[in-house]
């Protein structure tokens, strides 16, 4: 066996999948409840919870920015990895094209999210 074996890049994608799956399992249900149900209906949380000054301050904070970025980007890596590996179940042969499309979407979302968040300043 050659000393210089080509190493698989699969662990990177599995790592992103695991991180995204875990993070979304812990926080996404409550986030959907807060941003999609409680705040729009004015239910449970104080009025103005997601007002412009508050959300801007949250997204400009180093920790807040990091949290939003981690949730959005890692969840997308989690989703596209799962879709990519599920193609087989629908009788679709997952080739390089499918791989580029799936991981490309996650990469695009990651870049757009990073640019958007960095554009808000610190």
């Amino acid at each position: 066996m050659s000393k210089y074996r080509t190493r698989s890049n699969a662990p990177i994608f599995w790592g992103l999948f695991g991180a995204g799956g875990m993070l979304s399992a812990l926080f996404v249900p409550m986030m959907i409840f807060i941003t999609g149900i409680a705040v729009p209906l004015g239910f449970l949380l104080p009025a103005g919870t997601m007002s412009y000054p508050k959300m801007l301050a949250f997204a400009q904070n180093f920790i807040g920015k990091g949290f939003i970025f981690a949730i959005i980007s890692l969840s997308l890596w989690f989703c596209v990895h799962r879709v990519y590996h599920s193609l087989h179940e629908f009788g679709i042969h997952a080739g390089m094209g499918a791989k580029l499309l799936c991981y490309g979407i996650a990469m695009l979302v990651t870049v757009v999210c990073a640019v958007g968040l960095l554009g808000l300043g610190f």
Partner: peptide, 22 residues
């Protein structure tokens, strides 16, 4: 397996929010 699509859909809603905030 399909629940990943729900999570991703929500994250795209959030991404639009980030862009609108900017």
């Amino acid at each position: 397996e399909s629940t990943a699509l729900f999570v991703a859909a929500y994250c795209l809603v959030l991404l639009v929010g980030v862009i609108r905030l900017g």
